[in-house]
């Protein structure tokens, strides 16, 4: 098979999932669902989650569970809003980037110093970030002007995501760090004997994640232009969206690179939400559907292998009989 042909085949495999999801909803609601304008809006909505999910990519490869992304995005948004109202646009951008770095450092340090399972650390941090958000500068929430939200509107929102995507693609596939992430994720012990320091790798993985969440927070505020503090783990659903995109990417990783898989994943997730709205499913039930989809998806990866084996056996039995 030629190289171009190979790329084409893998692209087709990767795009099959969103296309199938699209067609299903299109068949049910041909008039309202998935018009070009609607797709354009869905694409914009998918960008913020894409940036989050890109940030989670290294952590997921290593096997670290991070439940704090949503709360960081909210917290960064609140900080950005405050700085915009005090000092203007560029202060807001700087605040977004710097606070992302800061949260990255806090997460990374907490995880490496405490040596507690990542689930415990990040759930703890999420509760802290959420609570701090609700008292931050009076806890009233923030809003910015539409003009200031330029990074959350096309074409800027796409450009920002594209840049973040390219950076992660390079980090994940073309650097020593990226190789080490995969080594530690698959077999920490062997990685260690090869001279890789897993703790350092994990630290940087958390740190990179934080930086991405900072940008995601900035883009999120820019897109919504208004934001109020979250509480009672209210930030979990967006964290889950990003995580699910990551799972879809893992599933697709045989065919497409993890980094591109994430984009396909977030887009698919948003298509599903939009589709459920289009066929008139209530908000609560939407969550049920999305949760079921996740379970089905993870399960499917397992089932697929079994079905394959089963098919092979039947084929073989037929050959023997012939």
């Amino acid at each position: 098979m030629g190289k171009t042909k190979k790329y084409a085949v893998s692209a087709l495999k990767g795009l099959a999932l969103p296309v199938v999801v699209y067609l299903i909803f299109k068949l049910i609601r041909p008039a309202t669902f998935g018009t070009p304008e609607a797709l354009y809006i869905i694409a914009q909505q998918a960008m913020m989650v894409t940036i989050m999910s890109l940030g989670m990519c290294c952590n997921m490869t290593i096997g670290i569970w991070d439940f704090s992304p949503g709360s960081i995005v909210t917290m960064v948004g609140l900080i950005c809003g405050y700085y915009f109202n005090q000092y203007g646009f560029w202060a807001m951008v700087a605040a977004g980037i710097l606070s992302g770095i800061l949260f990255g450092l806090i997460n990374a340090t907490a995880y490496t110093v405490l040596r507690v399972p990542s689930v415990v650390v990040t759930v703890g941090l999420m509760l802290i970030y959420e609570s701090y958000g609700s008292v931050y500068k009076g806890g009233k929430g923030v809003s910015i002007t539409r003009e200031a939200g330029i990074l959350g509107q096309a074409p800027w929102i796409f450009l920002v995501t594209l840049v973040m995507l390219i950076i992660l693609y390079v980090i994940y596939n073309k650097t020593k760090f990226g190789f080490n992430v995969k080594a530690v994720g698959n077999n920490e012990l062997i990685a260690k004997t090869a001279g890789i320091n897993p703790r350092v790798v994990k630290f940087f993985s958390f740190f990179i994640a934080g930086c991405y969440f900072g940008i995601a927070g900035l883009v999120n505020l820019s897109y919504t232009t208004a934001l109020s503090p979250a509480k009672n783990m209210g930030t979990m659903s967006v964290t889950f969206d990003a995580m699910m995109a990551g799972f879809i990417a893992i599933y697709l990783s045989g065919a497409v690179n993890r980094v591109f898989g994430i984009v396909i994943g977030t887009f698919t997730m948003k298509l599903i939400s939009a589709g459920l709205v289009a066929i008139g499913v209530e908000a609560t039930w939407q969550k049920v559907f999305v949760g079921a989809f996740l379970l089905f998806f993870i399960g499917f990866t397992q089932i697929k292998a079994q079905v394959n084996e089963w098919m092979n056996r039947i084929k073989r039995a037929k050959q023997v009989k012939a």
Binding site: T175, K176, F179, N187, I190, A194
Partner: peptide
């Protein structure tokens, strides 16, 4: 050897620097 990595990545495990260019890319 480590699953999920290529033969080449396994051969140069921990020694990836040899293939680093000036920009730090492999």
């Amino acid at each position: 050897t480590i699953d999920g990595m290529t033969v080449a990545a396994n051969i140069f495990l921990g020694k990836e620097d040899i293939f680093q260019n000036k920009a730090g890319l492999l």
